[in-house]
Amino acid sequence: MKSKTTLKFLTCALLSTGMCMNANAQSVENRQVNKAYWTSGIDGYVLSTAIDSRNIKPANSASVSTPRFTAFFHIGANVNYDITKHVGIFTGLSIKNIGFIEKYNNPDSTAKRRVYTFGIPLGFKFGNLKYGSFLIAGGGVDFPFNYKEKGFIDRGNKTKFNEWFSSRTPAVMPYFFIGAHLRPIVAVKLQYYPANFMNPNYSETVGNTTVKPYANYDVQLLMLTLGFDINYRPRS
């Protein structure tokens, strides 16, 4: 049932994208410089992993976690300003679903940790802005507002919980990105979060003992996104 729902969602997204591409292609040549305009700035599909730099075997080495794919729930809107026909800037607001998957061998189990975040990007555009094909680069900050953790042991014995404004993760998550906007509306982006995704100082009481479940964690997110940047420009 879940796979059918996902297939329907992807099909609707692709059909909607096709209709928007046709409408957007007709108006892209009308972009004017020195005028602000809106774009959707949606990170539609996100493939992420985590670079795990904990003291693991072999000692002091880094590993990459199991890839995590998500298409829900990512929305956003950007304000753009083209300084010239080849250089522009943008900022905006976004909501993203980001996280990582951790596998254990003894016993065979999986933990999934994710947060929903409010984000503010700040980026630069270089290329043929009027045509709609250009490079993007910049950074931003995300502010987590909901944390969720799921656990599975031998594909059973599921546990899960979520917390609003949890202190299990940092309150601020800075990131950097590079990518490209492809005519007319597709945007491909690589994002890197250099700070630890988990808060190693977080503590909780289990029984009569205070523990720090993330004390040894040192994980940085790496994300590849396929987005849709639909333009809403003023008339010429």
Rank of each mutant, 00 (worst) to 15 (best):
N22F: 14
F9H: 12
N24V: 06
T17W: 11
G18M: 01
L7S: 12
R54S: 07
Y37G: 00
N55L: 03
L7A: 09
V33T: 09
T39D: 03
S16D: 14
V28R: 10
T39N: 03
R31C: 06
C20W: 11
T5Q: 14
G18A: 02
C20P: 13
I51Y: 09
A13K: 09
V28I: 05
D43C: 03
L14M: 09
C12Q: 12
S16C: 14
N30G: 10
S40E: 00
N34I: 08
T5Y: 08
L15N: 08
A50C: 00
A23S: 13
Y45G: 08
S3R: 10
C20E: 06
C20F: 15
Q32M: 12
T17A: 06
Q26C: 13
M21P: 04
L47N: 06
K35L: 11
V46N: 04
K35Y: 13
G41V: 00
V33E: 11
V28P: 13
A36V: 08
I42Y: 07
S48Q: 13
S40L: 03
E29H: 12
R54M: 04
C20G: 09
L10P: 00
T39G: 05
S16E: 13
S27D: 11
G41E: 01
D52R: 00
R54K: 06
N30T: 13
N24M: 02
R31M: 06
S16V: 07
L7M: 15
Q32G: 05
A13Q: 04
L15K: 01
L47W: 03
S27M: 13
E29F: 11
S16Q: 15
A23H: 14
R54N: 02
A23W: 07
G41Y: 05
L47E: 02
K2P: 00
G18C: 00
L15R: 10
Y37S: 02
V33W: 14
Y37H: 01
M19T: 14
F9P: 04
T39Q: 02
V33S: 11
V28M: 13
T49E: 07
M1K: 15
G18K: 01
A50Q: 00
A36D: 08
V46F: 07
W38R: 14
M1Q: 15
N24Q: 05
S53H: 12
